[in-house]
Design a protein around this nucleic acid. Structure first.
Lengths: 177, 177
DNA sequence: CAATAATCTTGATTGACTCTATTTACTGAA
DNA sequence: TTCAGTAAATAGAGTCAATCAAGATTATTG
């Protein structure tokens, strides 16, 4: 949020051939604070930052950024779309089955197209998207023998397993890098 | 659709501890014909097969099958949920950026958890889900120098790239194994 | 500073999916 | 074979992320 950062963000937007507006800068700042934010989260953060912005504008801005390659959109199943600033390195994600927490994972094998399918049916493959599913540290703690640790808001076992349908509007937690 | 097949499907449903009903068998048959079908496709196929079924019933049946492990649900970004009968081998998928065609890809490295993230942030990972993105053979042909091949219904370039938002209700094409 | 497009706002609309209540019918036991 | 008991199907309203459309603003460029 320092002038320096702003200058950098302004430059980023401009270099993508897009006009620099308050809503756009606010969206970028929101994504910098929350590396895997859904639209609603960005809307709230942007409103705190610049007072007022329509959620439609946020949808527009995010779509424009994604089209320009400034922002990457991911969609872990059972979750609404999430947006992240880290682009260009084709990294992957770990998602917690219990609470939905998302973390970044570096590409395992070298650079983009880090994997080659055994038989691609003649497809020309240009990207391998990997999502690791598991349980995050704090949910592991919560599931451990009672009385040993603080627990996140959801119960043990897997009431929300995304494999069984759409997630119940759960908040996206972040995992520190 | 032969009696033999039916017997097998009946057994499949029953072995999952579920009651055997016409809608359920119809859903299984639909999925056998269309290995990566969305709900609407299943509904249509089932209606052809048994005359009448509510789409709600199809949602219920699919959810029950997924919960029972008889069916796997996938959600390539930009697509609605797709369902497939092939379960238990943690195979992956190739998706065409142009037309949305989906194909199966065998797990590249050994069996389930075929990949290990470099740094999982303390997550206990139990599954690695991989989606390959590219262009299918027929869309490649369509994009080739004019006059050389038949083309699918969508134009060249990438009007529907899922990375730019929700897909415009496009039909899911199948890719032969 | 004016011209012109891009961007933002407002408000309606879509469409996949969910929820609840009620009816139907599969299954095991009498 | 008949009869609960209960899983499953139907009907219909409701949810919510995301999209569309039209008019009002505003960032750029000369």
């Amino acid at each position: 949020m320092t002038p320096d950062d702003d200058r950098h963000l302004v430059e980023l937007v401009r270099s993508a051939g897009l006009r620099v507006t308050a809503p756009r800068l606010a969206v970028l700042r929101a994504l910098r604070q929350r590396p895997h934010a859904d639209t609603e989260t960005v809307v709230r953060a942007a409103r705190v930052a610049i007072g007022s912005i329509s959620s439609q504008a946020v949808y527009n801005v995010l779509a424009a950024f994604v089209a320009a390659g400034l922002v990457r959109r991911i969609e872990p199943m059972g979750s609404v779309a999430l947006y992240e600033l880290r682009v260009g390195d084709n990294h992957h994600h770990v998602v917690c089955r219990t609470c939905g927490a998302v973390g970044d994972v570096d590409c395992a094998v070298g650079r983009r197209p880090c994997l080659t399918p055994s038989d691609a049916h003649g497809f020309v493959v240009d990207e391998a998207e990997v999502t690791y599913w598991g349980v995050c540290p704090s949910c592991q703690a919560a599931a451990a023998p009672a009385g040993s640790a603080r627990r996140p808001r959801s119960a043990p076992s897997r009431p929300d397993d995304p494999r069984s349908g759409r997630a119940a509007g759960r908040a996206v937690r972040e995992v520190e890098r």
